[in-house]
Each structure stands twice: as structure tokens, then as C-alpha cells.
Design a protein around this nucleic acid. Structure first.
Lengths: 332, 332
DNA sequence: CACCGGATGGCAATCGGTTGCCATGACTTG
DNA sequence: CAAGTCATGGCAACCGATTGCCATCCGGTG
């Protein structure tokens, strides 16, 4: 690989001139610069990003840490982040920490000195640990609010409200919420919004769980749901909702005839399952894209970034898993 | 961030000694080394990976290039690759090229000088371009065979054979193959193996397509399949198979009662859809893991790596989309 | 006692760009 | 014509680690 020294020699100029021909347009005589560029092109010269990064600290790398790459929730988030990064001439480094806080720390310690900024998707680390990390590199957190650190989240409250209203319009008066992990910030938001909206609309609502945020978790919840008086269920997320529907089917409860089910996120698969899932769609790609854009703008401005949480709108997508409450009630 | 110079000063030794205390155990007096480590620990010293990489070329970074991160086919591949990389103390850089050969070149040009090796997942580039890239950095290709370059592929021939045998056992005598992109190496393998096996078992088989390797592509294929005499279909991959099932359902053809459907890969979602898809499961996580391991072993040995393709076994997973051929035939 | 080899630590070059500062020369201006 | 300004290019330090080579000191040996 040729270096600026090789190019400089071939052109009969100093290495610094070659460097400036690329990084400081105008600082070098136009003809000289053109000649250097031509020769560099011919020699196949490419700047070594490592060498450039060493003195300047500019690696053009961003990290996106996800709790589990195989979780379909992240697919579009990763894509959105990737797009925004590429647009800004950055490369995205995706780190998968397979749901382990320890792995997350290790991955971050390894990646931090390499990257210029970090997006934490659903971090498993404690608030204080995150704050420590955020001191070292510009950081944006996804799906979580952390005062003092820029966050990007979905408007869970509004989304939940829309889901409950939808169920109310279909005639349901008794609802259930299948809870996800207690530690989940989103779980808290959803449950709270659900209770509030239910109260406003004079619906009864109760909560079962917590369950693991997986297909299996949902299947396990089927028993509790089947035994409840609820005619409609809101699940912590789509995976749980799909698992729940399978569990209900196995128990002889038909969806949406006997029970309506609503999920969250609109992941890949929500449309595939049968019946297709009604869900509160998170703007996944926008989430990833916006997180990176927020990160970049924070990196550019000297001033500490506006650390309020950005709220991206959710949208209720009605499919087949919700229906008018049937006249023949079930349960108590 | 403290550097070896800071640690050296604090210990009253030369920077080189600090460096050796970490990288050359035994080269430094045991007591001195222990003291240096302790002081370094107290100061929170961490080696700067960039500075290390500059003279040595060791970045501890590997690249995995995927044609589309949102394709569920890659989820487990990425995870497997990530695991193998982490085990070997490497960090994986995932680049998404959203199905564009141009984006793929750009991504590679950007990433190549940074990484020590590359895994190309379903590359969209031409053989010759890949060979040029492979000259610059150790490379392994996934799902494609390229003489002279180590490859890791699924045993498509055997897998296809198993699928066809399965259908034959269920009494099907007339099969169809829904083809994927012509440029796809796997498509060629699958279709050839299908024809051969069908011949051996004296089955009739014909081919429709090509179609895009997506849900939509599959849905579009439904018409051609419904109009054919086939009672069983093998689709290019799971996405096509699922799309096909939906298209058939819309056309009033019931799966598996009227037509049996088999897919390829066993992606996330194959089990979710209804009916659950019978499919030739690729060992996705192993594929990713094995590719990285092959890459690493190639990087370690001086000798050019054994460039034969590694064939990983596929497995037929029978679910609900295949059934005994019904007595009342359909079509011609 | 002279010599030798191993253990230990330091010096300084190196990786490949970047950049502050200075030198030179041309041109402008009073 | 002297002084000042601007354009242009080179010198050399620097980022932070790695490493070949040399210096020193030790004990052991003939």
C-alpha cells in the first residue's frame, strides 16, 4: 500500500503537501493539488484510517450496542442506524451483547477507544454505569430515558392509549395486560398508560406476569389469560403476543373470536403469524436513524446536547387479532 | 486517558518497560511487572487500540458484510459470527450493503484497511471483484463457492434430496420448484439437486420463476403454482415459501390440504406462520461461527488456507405445511 | 581473576498521517 | 523603493504503542 511519502516522492513534494492536498483544499496551489491527486490515483493511494485516527481521534466509527441481534425488534433499528451513519460518512459497528450486562461492559470497553460515539439500544446496564460510559464518549440511549443523556424513545403512552381505545370501540370492557420484565422501562410506561386510559374509559383492567419477553414467555401467559375474565389482552411486545396466541390456541381459546390480542412494536413476523397481529407499531427504522442523527449532532456541537428525550410517534396497526367482543362471554 | 508514558513516569521506568510488562510476560522482572500493573490499574490505564494497531497492523477487528441486515436469514449467522469472533478476542464489524454491489464496494474500501479479515455473506459482487478484495485481506465467502477462496456453504444437495424424498413419501408425484434470483448460486444448486432426485424417484418436476427472494416474490408465484399440476412445491427460500402460502390462501388453495410447501433455511418466522413451514433448515449459527473460525485459522497460518468449500449439513424440519397428497387431485 | 552468558531495562526508530510554525517569493501599496 | 500581505511549500513535532539493539549488572566458570 502506497503512503503519502510514496506519493510525495513521486511528485517531488513534501509529505505534508500531499496530506494537505487531500484534507485542506485551497491550502495548496490548485495545479499542484491536481497533480498530486492524479499521481495518488494512479498509484492507488488510500489514506490509512488508523494513521489518521491516531493524532486526530477521528475514526469515523460509531457503535450500536444491541441486547440481542437475533431479536427482530432490532432489525429495522440497525438498518436505520446504518443508513444514517453511512450518510454522514461513518461506519457502524454493531455489537451484540446477548442479554448480558457483563458482555455489554466488555464490548464497550473494547469498542469505546475505537469509536467516536455510541448508541445504546435497550441497555442492560445500570443507570450509573451508563453515565460513566457516557462521560467517555458521546452517547445516545434508545428505548429508555436517562436524565442528562439524550434519549430516543417511542411514544408509548399515546400508542397504548390508541390500543385501549381501539379495544373499547370494539366493545371490550375487561382488559388484561401481559407484563414483560420488571426492569424494562417500556413495560412500566405501557402498563401505566394502560391503567390510566382504562380508568378514563371506565374499563376494568388487570395485570398478569411478569413474563420473559419471548415467545415462550407469551405461551406461559396463556393460562393466566384464559383463566381471567378479560376479553381483550394487551401484551408487552409482539413476541409475547404471538406466543400468547399460540398458547391460547393450544388451550382451545380462539383469537380474535374469544379474545382479542394486541402487541407492541410491529416486528417482522407480526404480519406473518395467524391471525395476523394487531399491534402498536414503533417507527423502528426511524428510531435507529434518529438515534444516530442525534448522536452526530451532539458530537458536532461543542455545547452539551439537549438531553431531553425525543419522542417518536407510534401507530396502531389493526390486523386480524382484534375483533368486536363476541356476545357469548367467556370466563367469570 | 493515561498512556504508557504516564504509567512509566509514575513507576520510574521507561515506557518500553511498561509496554513489555503487558505484552511480553517474562521479559520484565516479575516484581517490576507486578508494580507496573498495579500502578496502571490504579491510574485506569487502557492500551489505545489505534496506537497499537498502527505499527503492528493488529486491529482485532473482523468485518462481516451482509447483503441485507433486515433479512432474517442473517440473524443467526450474525450471532454465530459474533460469538466466534468474541471467543477469539476479536470484534465484529457488521456492514449492511442493502443489496447493492456499489454499496458493497464502498463499504469494503472503507472497512478493509481497518480490519484483519473479511467474511462475505452472500456477496453481490462479481467473482473477479471478490478475488481482488481477497488479495488485500484474508477472506471467507458464505453461501457461495469461489475456487481459490475458502467458502462455507450449506449442503444444499443433500437438503434438497431430503425434502424431495419427504414429499415422495407423502405420495406426491408431481412437484414444482419456485425459483429465486438467477444470479443466486444456491438457487442453481437447489434446482439441480431437485431435478436429479426427482428423476431418481421418477417424479415429475417443473420450475416456475424466477421470482424475487421476498414475501412479495412468493405471493406472485402463487398464480403460477395454482395453475400447475403440482401437488407439492419446493420454494427457493422460506420468505418465498411463506409469501407463496399467503398467495395460495388468497387464491383459495389450502396448504397443506391441496398443496404441500417446503422452504429453505428455517429462518425466524418459519415456525410462526400458519401453517408452520416445513423447511430445509440451514445451520445458520454454525455457518456464521464456522466462517469466522475458518477465517481466523487462515489468518494464523502462514500457508494459504485450504480453499475447498466446507459443507455444513442441512436438516429437514417437518412442520405443518406438508401432508399426504389428498385423494381429490387438483389442476390438470 | 578474566571471561561469558543470562536477566533486565533503556534508547530510539517506526507505523502514516496531521498541523503549527517558519521560509520564501511574488505582488501590492504608500 | 521599502514595507507589508498573501500564497505556497517544507520542517519537524506529535499521536501512543511496539520492538530491535545496546548497556549494565549479576552470578557462574575455567
Amino acid at each position: 500500500m502506497p503512503t503519502i511519502y510514496d506519493v510525495a516522492e513521486a511528485c517531488g513534494v513534501a509529505p505534508s503537501t500531499v496530506s494537505r492536498a487531500f484534507s485542506r483544499p485551497g491550502r495548496v496551489n490548485a495545479d499542484t493539488a491536481a497533480r498530486i491527486r492524479r499521481v495518488a490515483e494512479e498509484m492507488g493511494y488510500r489514506a490509512n484510517p488508523l494513521a489518521r485516527a491516531l493524532p486526530t481521534g477521528k475514526t469515523s466509527l460509531l457503535a450500536l450496542v444491541v441486547s440481542d441481534v437475533t431479536n427482530p425488534f432490532y432489525f429495522e433499528i440497525i438498518r436505520g442506524a446504518e443508513l444514517a451513519a453511512t450518510e454522514a460518512d461513518y461506519t457502524l459497528l454493531v455489537a451484540d451483547v446477548h442479554e448480558s450486562a457483563t458482555a455489554e461492559r466488555t464490548a464497550l470497553e473494547r469498542a469505546l477507544p475505537l469509536v467516536e460515539g455510541v448508541v445504546l439500544g435497550t441497555s442492560r446496564m445500570s443507570d450509573s454505569t451508563i453515565r460513566v460510559m457516557a462521560k467517555q464518549r458521546p452517547t445516545v440511549v434508545l428505548n429508555r430515558v436517562l436524565t442528562g443523556i439524550p434519549s430516543v424513545i417511542t411514544d408509548n403512552a399515546r400508542g397504548t392509549r390508541r390500543a385501549v381505545e381501539h379495544l373499547a370501540e370494539l366493545g371490550h370492557r375487561s382488559l388484561a395486560y401481559v407484563a414483560g420484565p420488571e426492569a424494562s422501562w417500556a413495560d412500566g410506561m405501557r402498563w401505566r398508560a394502560m391503567r390510566e386510559t382504562a380508568e378514563e374509559l371506565s374499563l376494568r383492567v388487570h395485570r398478569v406476569g411478569p413474563y420473559a419477553p419471548t415467545l415462550t414467555g407469551g405461551t406461559e401467559a396463556a393460562l393466566a389469560v384464559a383463566g381471567s375474565p378479560a376479553t381483550a389482552v394487551v401484551a408487552y411486545n409482539d413476541l409475547v403476543a404471538i406466543g400468547l396466541m399460540r398458547g391460547l390456541a393450544a388451550a382451545g381459546v380462539r383469537v380474535p373470536r374469544d379474545v382479542s390480542v394486541v402487541g407492541f412494536d410491529d416486528i417482522f413476523g407480526a404480519e406473518l403469524c395467524s391471525p395476523a397481529l394487531t399491534t402498536v407499531a414503533a417507527p423502528l427504522q426511524s428510531l435507529g436513524r434518529f438515534a444516530v442523527q442525534t448522536l452526530l449532532s451532539g458530537m458536532r456541537s461543542r455545547t452539551p446536547p439537549d438531553a431531553r428525550a425525543a419522542l417518536l410517534p407510534a401507530q396502531l396497526v389493526v390486523r386480524e387479532s382484534t375483533a368486536r367482543r363476541s356476545s357469548r362471554r367467556r370466563g367469570a
